[in-house]
Each structure stands twice: as structure tokens, then as C-alpha cells.
Design a protein around this nucleic acid. Structure first.
Length: 507
RNA sequence: CGGGGCGUAGCGCAGUUGGUAGCGCGCGUGUUUUGGGAACAUGAGGUCGCAGGUUCGAAUCCUGUCGCCCCGACCA
């Protein structure tokens, strides 16, 4: 089955440049870096071992942080009774249009005997929904778990797949099925729930994005129109892509008492009164991989921050006959030393591929560092070590390779963040006139982040979106410059504004 | 759902007065190679998306149908 025939692949090697076609650059990179592939079902993706190893690394770090902040993992079912969705009106409104529905439990031969059809005899009495998110099934369960204030708070997370029948999909950025974690907590007070939502935003998501993914993010609160269906308010982190758009990398919602009321979850307080609980939910998904690619990668392929890279160092032994045996032995020895220090290494001792082929191969796949081990190097006692995010190769004495690599991996992690931060800085604009604002978002492509004043009304927000395709990504919680938090006048209407908000074209 | 494009080998494509399918890459084998995507030789691989129809004969013409990609509406 041919799925991406519009992708005009120039050859089986290489990818388009970001400059020539950013969208194709991304699409081809994802596939050629072995991060994901198309599947026979539209919008679903196959994640091969290399891509999954990356996800596992992300998962592991996030899972540790989630547990560190007091949460436990649990698992709830994939299938949810349709009736559960009838209970929270806004939530239904938000998800009804994109639900996959299970209606039968058996297949049978069609009349002509040539194919299988759902057996009319086996239609379910109540259709089941493949979870688009798990609030409803979880709140139905929490009703059983919560009787007393002594049962609170409940701090639970689950790693799962969910399905949303998206009309237009893109590998990692928007797939019909995706992997994620979803946290669901219950609390006695509004303030405690808000503190929870903010803990996740600051201590987990923002920290993970910046310290592990090396992607700087804006933390903020969503406007009413961008708030999660069924939430009281939503917090988010927003990153900038290399084509100057915004990408929502994570969300943390304060659900108020909406779900508690919809699912009748009350507890008896210390004073003996019945009270509805307050709730949060929060999630990050495989979209983070798309964010990672868009933040750091280049025209040679994937660039991955060392903390998350499936392979951090690859050794390429060179030479022929005894020479090759010798270089391979040296490579394996150094690799073992690095592995002992917890570094993820690979020795590419494939016989048929040339060193040049191997260099390109691993560059495409985002290996952070490469060590060339050749006869010349061994004679000189220096090996060629290159970093994925730098052009030049360093000559390093064999004995100091392990220390050098260890130091450079740490340096690369920091440098990627610094570079991404500088890029974002260079593409943030503080704009106070409508003409300049409109001009900034004119034409195709993104316009970076525009920090501008907004009068706080949904009408103005919508109007600006219609005129420029830029939307309010968030109302920042912490400002880059103190003056961004000062009052001003709306860039469109001139009405009073409390602070600047982040405008951008979004993924 | 609207507009556009397209279904031929694993991938990218060619193939019209209708005559039973080809190229490049990749893949197997062998030899020579290997310092930034090696070369030659040899071989394997396709009921031309599916279903009808026209015809002596259909990848090609007709009808229907399914699917995919891009742009839009919707969305993490």
C-alpha cells in the first residue's frame, strides 16, 4: 500500500531541506530516521524500535518525575460505555465528533461469502467508545473509591493509548491513535487542585521539556476558547518550532467540580458534610516527539538531546583485514567503557557499508556523537570524534575518548537548549500596533511569537484569528521581561489589557 | 464534508491509435571494495487498488466502488 505518494522523495537517501519544504522535510525525516511509519489505517502509526526506544526514554524520565511528585500508576480500560459520555455536557461536545465506536462483537461471512461483515446477530446493546481520553471511566471509578476526606487526595496516572478520529493527521503531531500519560487527581479544595495542576505544569512538564528535551517553553493559561472540554481552566506549555509556529507540548487542567458533579462523586468532610471533590487531569503524548524533531533537527536528519537519545555514541571502525580487526577491537573496548558509565553506545561493525554511508546513516537517526576508529587514527593515537550538532571533527587521544565523550554529551544537552532559546528569543516580537501585528503574520508560514496586549474578550480573540490565523497560545504565567506583565491597550481594539499574551500560528 | 492530486515490484516512477509490463533505488548471491551515502556481474520479486462492462484481446476505453496524499473546515 502506498501512502505518501505526494512526498516526491528525491532519492531513497536524504530529505528535503527545511528551507525548500518544511512540511516534507518533517514528514520524510520522521520516516527515514526510523522514528515512525505509516500504517494501513489512516492516521495510525507504526513506531519501529528506534522510535520506540526514544519514547521509552521519554516515558522513563516522565514517569520518574510523576512518581517523584507523589503519583501512582494505574490502568483503566480501553473501552468506555457510550452512556458515560452523556454525563458531562461540555466534555461530550468536545469529543463526540471524533469518537471511534465499537458496535459488534463478532464477524460473519457476507452474503456472497467473499468477505467478513459485523454479524447483525452480534450487535452490542450499548455501543462502546474507544477512549479519546479517560475522564469518564475514571470518574465512574472514583465514585467508588471516594467516600471520606480521608480517601483524598487521589493522585493517579496512567500510561495508555487513546484514539481521536482526527480529520487530518500527521505523524506524531496529530495521529488518530496516540500514546500518552494522563493524570487524574481528586482533591478536597479548589486551591489544592490548582496547586496540583501547577505542580505538574512547572515541576514535571516544563522541567521535562527544558531539561530533558532541551526545548524552552512558555508556561501559561489557556483562554476560554482554548480550554479543555469540561475544564474550569487549562494550563499549558508552548514551544516554538523552526518554522516559527507554536506547538502545544503539554496541558494540565483544573476540572473544578464538573466531573465530580457529573459522576456524583462526593465525600464526607471532617465536619460531616457531603462535598463534591475538585479534580485535575493532565497529559503529554507522543506529540512530544514531533516537538523534539521540530525544535532541534536539521537538513541532515534528526538531532536528539543526549539525555533522550536511543543511541548516544556510535563507533565506526575502519580499515581492511587485520586493520579492521584491530580498529573493531579498539571500538568495542571503548564502547564497553562508556557502557559501564551508563552511556548508550553502538559499534557499527557492518561489513558492507562504507564509513561514509554509516556517518550519514547515524546522522539521520539522531545519534549524538560518532567516533571514527581508523588505521590512521590508531597510528596517531588520536580518534576522530564528532558531535551531531557541530560540523567539525575533534581529534582526541584514544585514552581520553571516554572522558571527552562524557563531557561533550553533557555539553551538547546544554548547547541544544541554549541554541533553541536563542532562536526563540530572536523570534519573539513585542507589537503594539495593529498594522505591525497583521504584517507579522502575513503570508504563509509562522510569524514567531508575538507578545501583544489583548482586551480579554472572546470576540477580539476570534477576530484576530480570522484576520491573521494567529491564535492566543497562552496567557503567560511567568514573563520573560517584567514589563510584559504590565497593563496596556489591546492591539486590535485599544481596550485596556492586563498583560501581554502570546500570539502565534499553531500546529 | 468541499477543492485538488493519485493508486503499476519493498520504495520512487515510466508505460494510449488496446496486443499480455519496464526503469532507478533497495533486496539475494559472487568478486573487487570501504577515510562522507562504492563498482561490476548475476538473480529474485508484479492476478497493474477492487468489482463489473466493452473487446478476439484491457494497466490502457466505459461504469461503479474502495483507499491514500495535499489544501480547507475541526483538533493535543
Amino acid at each position: 500500500m502506498r501512502i505518501c505518494q505526494n512526498l516526491k522523495v528525491s532519492s531513497n537517501l536524504g530529505i528535503p531541506t527545511r528551507e525548500s519544504n518544511y512540511a516534507d522535510w518533517y514528514n520524510e525525516l520522521v520516516v527515514k530516521a526510523d522514528l515512525a511509519d505509516y500504517s494501513p489505517v489512516r492516521g495510525c502509526m507504526i513506531i519501529p524500535p528506534h522510535g520506540f526506544a526514544l519514547w521509552e526514554n521519554m516515558q522513563r524520565a516522565l514517569d520518574d518525575m510523576i512518581k517523584e511528585t507523589g503519583h501512582q500508576n494505574a490502568y483503566f480500560p480501553l473501552l468506555i460505555p457510550k452512556s458515560f459520555f452523556d454525563k458531562e455536557a461540555d466534555h461530550v461536545e468536545g469529543f463526540a465528533k471524533e469518537c471511534a465506536v465499537v458496535t459488534h462483537h463478532r464477524l460473519t461471512k457476507s452474503a456472497d461469502g467473499k468477505s467478513l461483515i459485523p454479524d447483525p446477530e452480534a450487535e452490542l446493546e450499548e455501543p462502546l467508545i474507544i477512549r479519546p481520553t479517560s475522564e469518564t471511566i475514571i470518574w465512574n471509578t472514583y465514585k467508588k473509591w471516594i467516600q471520606s476526606y480521608r480517601d483524598l487526595p487521589i493522585l493517579v496516572n496512567q500510561w495508555a493509548n487513546v484514539m481521536r478520529w482526527e480529520l487530518r493527521t500527521r505523524l506524531f503531531l496529530r495521529t488518530a491513535e496516540f500514546l500518552w500519560q494522563e493524570g487524574h487527581t481528586a482533591h478536597t479544595t479548589y486551591e489544592e487542585a490548582d496547586a496540583e495542576a501547577l505542580t505538574i505544569l512547572h515541576d514535571v512538564y516544563s522541567k521535562f521539556a527544558e531539561e530533558w528535551m532541551a526545548v524552552p517553553v512558555f508556561r501559561g493559561i489557556k483562554t476560554k476558547s482554548e480550554t479543555f472540554a469540561g475544564a474550569s481552566h487549562s494550563y499549558c506549555i508552548e514551544a516554538m518550532t523552526q518554522d516559527l509556529r507554536a506547538i502545544q507540548a503539554g496541558t494540565s487542567h483544573h476540572l473544578g467540580q464538573n466531573f465530580a458533579k457529573a459522576f456524583d462523586v462526593q465525600y464526607q468532610s471532617a465536619e460531616g458534610k457531603l462535598e463534591y471533590v475538585y479534580a485535575t487531569s493532565w497529559g503529554v503524548s507522543t506529540r512530544l516527539i514531533g516537538t523534539l524533531i521540530m525544535a532541534h533537527s536539521d537538513d541532515k536528519g534528526f538531532v536528539c538531546p543526549p539525555k533522550l537519545a536511543p543511541i548516544q555514541v556510535v563507533f565506526v571502525p575502519m580499515g581492511k583485514a587485520e586493520g579492521l580487526e584491530q580498529t573493531t577491537a579498539v571500538a568495542k573496548d571503548l564502547a564497553a567503557q562508556l557502557k559501564a558509565k551508563g552511556i548508550r553506545v553502538k559499534v557499527d561493525d557492518r561489513a558492507k557499508e562504507s564509513p561514509g554511508f554509516k556517518a550519514k546513516h547515524w546522522e539521520m537517526r539522531g545519534v549524538c556523537m560518532r567516533v571514527d576508529v581508523g588505521g590512521r587514527e590508531l597510528e596517531a593515537g588520536e580518534l576522530g570524534v564528532s558531535r551531531r550538532d557541530e560540523d567539525e571533527k575533534q581529534m582526541v587521544t584514544t585514552g581520553s575518548v571516554v572522558d571527552h565523550v562524557t563531557a561533550q554529551l553533557a555539553a551538547m544537552q546544554g548547547d541544544l537548549f541554549t541554541k533553541a532559546l536563542a532562536f526563540r528569543e530572536a523570534n519573539i516580537h513585542r507589537i503594539d500596533t495593529w498594522d505591525a501585528f497583521a504584517k507579522q503574520f502575513d503570508g504563509e508560514g509562522g510569524g514567531g511569537f508575538v507578545l501583544a496586549h489583548w482586551d480579554g474578550t472572546a470576540e477580539t480573540e476570534e477576530k484576530i484569528r480570522e484576520l491573521t490565523k494567529a491564535s492566543i497560545r497562552c496567557i503567560p504565567l511567568n514573563h520573560e521581561k517584567p514589563e510584559d506583565g504590565q497593563p496596556g491597550k489591546c492591539v486590535l481594539t485599544g481596550a485596556p489589557s492586563q498583560q501581554r499574551v502570546v500570539f502565534a500560528k499553531a500546529y
